[in-house]
Design a protein around this nucleic acid. Sequence first.
DNA 1: GATGAATGAGCTTTCATTCAT
DNA 2: CATGAATGAAAGCTCATTCAT
Lengths: 198, 198, 198, 198
Amino acid sequence: MPKISEEKLKAKRDHIIACAFKVFSEKGYDATTMDDIVKLSGVSKGGIYHYFPSKEDVFFDIAEIQLAKRQALIAELASKSDFETFLKVYIKTVIKALDDETEVMNAKFSFEFWSIVTRAPKLQQYAQRRFAGFYKDLEQVFSDGVDGAKSLDVSAIGYVLIATIDGIIHTHAVMGIKASDAVIEYYTKAMINMVKNN
Amino acid sequence: MPKISEEKLKAKRDHIIACAFKVFSEKGYDATTMDDIVKLSGVSKGGIYHYFPSKEDVFFDIAEIQLAKRQALIAELASKSDFETFLKVYIKTVIKALDDETEVMNAKFSFEFWSIVTRAPKLQQYAQRRFAGFYKDLEQVFSDGVDGAKSLDVSAIGYVLIATIDGIIHTHAVMGIKASDAVIEYYTKAMINMVKNN
Amino acid sequence: MPKISEEKLKAKRDHIIACAFKVFSEKGYDATTMDDIVKLSGVSKGGIYHYFPSKEDVFFDIAEIQLAKRQALIAELASKSDFETFLKVYIKTVIKALDDETEVMNAKFSFEFWSIVTRAPKLQQYAQRRFAGFYKDLEQVFSDGVDGAKSLDVSAIGYVLIATIDGIIHTHAVMGIKASDAVIEYYTKAMINMVKNN
Amino acid sequence: MPKISEEKLKAKRDHIIACAFKVFSEKGYDATTMDDIVKLSGVSKGGIYHYFPSKEDVFFDIAEIQLAKRQALIAELASKSDFETFLKVYIKTVIKALDDETEVMNAKFSFEFWSIVTRAPKLQQYAQRRFAGFYKDLEQVFSDGVDGAKSLDVSAIGYVLIATIDGIIHTHAVMGIKASDAVIEYYTKAMINMVKNN
DNA sequence: GATGAATGAGCTTTCATTCAT
DNA sequence: CATGAATGAAAGCTCATTCAT
């Protein structure tokens, strides 16, 4: 039985993660120092190593949480919608979310993650495997909700969908060039037609 | 009278830039050390400072070249094509180029650039202004080549085009998940329809 | 709760200051490296930055201590003597002190300080203000201890006294040309007469 | 026979010395770079080494000139005056000169010189020997111009005179605390009385 | 468990001097 | 003689991590 309760431990870990997330989003991985995280979170310089073995681990733990969240969103929307609704709702959800500062941070963090991952081949493999999970859920939506889905290359469609939406998120959140309503409208229509008119 | 000729000077500068470009693409800005560049390029540690006043300057000089090249590509294609041809050729050119390792490095560098720029508000403004140049050329293609172009929000269309293609480049080059021919086909059609069927 | 006690912290800081003082006195500000201080003090290269944010800060912290000590000496002597006694004792104290190696270092450090300060206008203003404090205490001695003090330009007298004694210290400690007893005697008499016979 | 005339060589050397003198006075020895001198003088980076084998040599050549000038001043004044006149004129000459910016630079350079010299024992010996020359000329004035000069410790008197006047120059030129007319008057009287009333 | 002082390798940058042209 | 590109040792400072308390 630990001296402090499991919950407290978990709560503190979560607190550190929340703070680290903020700093990583703002400054990027390399420019973020353990001191930045330590100062923002209020833990001691030694203390943080009770919760995470290294700076890298803090970063990748956050990344894992991020990836899980996005996958969960897709899975949830997919489970209760036909394809067109899914597409509309997903795009709207993801892009409109960018009005929220936390979501902009999410986006920044995510691109930073891929930058880092790229540099370490081992990590890249893991990340790609992790990423593949997205497609599975998408395929489910396609096969359930679209007439003639079988004639579609669902993997390719999923790729286009995820890749292009990431592009818009990147332009909006990282590059700071805001996507107007017209942008979202054009984009949504284009994606829907991509499947329908195929 | 300089000790060595203008050409040699320029050649050496270009050589340093090529080497730095490689390292920056592979490791990112922060993780790249001047020593990395120095070792790869073969100049001396002090010598590099004859050509660039700081690491930052090496990076941004490369960025400027990159931006100019992409803008030039757009401008060139735009000048001699109707919109549909432009779209097809542009997408093909940009995405097929990713088979070339140098272009993958270009892509990595470019995303790294936006990561860095994001952290310094002043740079971001410059970058956004720089970026705006892309749209001007695109608009020209639209207004010339598309019936009823005036009813199109060319700015929004341009945004979608550039942002989504960047997304595919990112997924392909940075995340390392290769875009199949099917992906490119779906994507190209979707973009063409976005304008035509509007 | 800090890992080590306040006293130990203070003691270590004082130790670093003592070592830095020695090196600065011997080599001057610019020629002194952090490594010199680090090696002499036995702390680690990173460790010194726990105590001082920069080399400059080490230097100016020492300078502040020095200035305070000299001012304290003047204030103390001034408080318990008539002018003539003060003058004799002060000159004797300051100049005789130069037999002590630490005091020679004090002198060297002090002139080095003024050299450095001179180059940064902002610091110069601070230093001049700091210096003005000396005169106030001197004025007190003059007005209390000298008949007809009011007819004296105490500010000018103070200037001559401090400037000339600094000159002797400089010649003795920095230039290394020792002041004989005869020098001190001539000088002391001259200063006493300067006030008395006025 | 050299390709360019001796005079041109000498002129260029003098020009470099004048520029170096300016920079050394402003920034001190260590903070002055060869580049500073090179830029101000307009010679090339390699060219300066035709005239001086090292930075140190530039500095000490200037110092030598300085010392010679001051000695010449003393010698000249000494040769044509009785002691009291000499004292008055010398003090006036030296101190009033401080209104001139070049002379302030002279003073700064001189104190910088002694700082540097201090750090190298070999140089210090040279400098002390060099300095001893001043006394010889002074002694001549004393023995010629003062009744009972033989009862005076002319060496001690000379020390006080030179050391104290240096103190005033230091306070005025280096510390930047200007000496008023009253200061000079008090000081001059004190020095004259030091000899007369002895 | 928690703390923060300590470590030292490694970073970017500077600069007196050299030497090919 | 003149030039300025090249050199590389060394500077001040940072920071992930460790460990005595």
